[in-house]
Nucleic acid binder design. Structure first.
Lengths: 169, 169
DNA sequence: GCCATATCGTAAGTATACTGTCAATCGAGG
DNA sequence: CCTCGATTGACAGTATACTTACGATATGGC
């Protein structure tokens, strides 16, 4: 006799990895925004600032690879950071297509000052778990993200992978 | 002497839970969309369909609590599902503010047919891990999402919590 | 029956996140 | 030198995801 299809229940949704990842991401953003409210920076904007700080004179395309965010999305992020005067865009003298990104003095100050709030936010996300479980979850997640890198629409290409493409900025 | 502040590096970003949650969510969505391309359904739209299937005649506000999605966001999701003729909205005879949600015949068929693709997508997300690690990650994540429920902007209020509010649909 | 309060759907505004496409520009081969 | 293919930034379009607000409606206290 034919096996009957499994019942469609919410429990199946609640237990699905994709659903849990989504919920956790929403929680993480909520916590980040709450802790960093005073700085008016979103998680993505913060990551972009760090990357520009680490790679002064990087261009938008490379920045998108370094933080694994979509290039089009990043365009708007850069626009907002620029309108808040946290970064500057200067045309490259070597390649007229490229606009090089640098932190402004104000951007560097914000980045320096926001660090404690960011650390507090990151800690709060894992707070409910026992310390050993936090380590275990982080290790598994790091592993999984790395192994799934190519499944992402915008795979991470860390600094190393970009060096051979480097143009002097 | 004063301790100097830790260097600001991308490695700190890459290791931050918030960054990993975001990356994993992006990967999960990419895999879901790829596996379910034939059905033209996003993860959120799928979750909404399941919830409406499980709770025929639910209203938008309650639906948002059952799947823990923002009410305003859900408004647009419902609009798209309706324009694809997967669900119907009917005014309640008891409360003129409320519009009750039901699957159409077509919506029920899509939900039935998409299940294998959804299962494949969910499996693919964890595929790179060893089976024991998959279980461990899911368990930790389930625990963390549950314990952080109230930190979310839209905490999950599962079916049970809604029953005492129930109005006959 | 009236009024303060709450709820429902909806909308405007902001911010990711992705798909395409396009013009300008660059680099390489012939 | 010139054309071809690739790259860069920009834009339009779709879909979450959240905030605040507002009108219509319900409800509880009186």
């Amino acid at each position: 006799m034919p096996s009957k299809p499994p019942a469609i229940t919410m429990d199946a949704v609640y237990a699905a990895p994709g659903y849990l990842f989504r919920r956790m991401q929403q929680i993480a953003v909520a916590i980040f925004v709450e802790e960093c409210r005073a700085f008016d920076l979103t998680p993505v904007q913060y990551a972009a600032l760090v990357a520009i700080h680490t790679h002064p004179g990087i261009d938008a395309t490379r920045l998108s690879a370094v933080i694994a965010f979509d290039r089009s999305t990043l365009g708007n992020v850069i626009l907002r950071l620029e309108s808040k005067a946290l970064i500057e865009r200067k045309p490259s003298s070597e390649d007229k297509r490229v606009k090089l990104l640098h932190l402004t003095r104000s951007g560097a100050a914000v980045l320096r000052d926001i660090m404690p709030s960011v650390d507090r936010a990151q800690a709060r996300m894992l707070q409910p778990l026992k310390p050993a479980d936090r380590k275990a979850l982080l290790a598994l997640l790091t592993q999984l993200v790395d192994l799934n890198n190519e499944a992402s629409r915008v795979p991470l290409r860390a600094e190393d992978a970009l060096e051979h493409l480097g143009r002097s900025g």
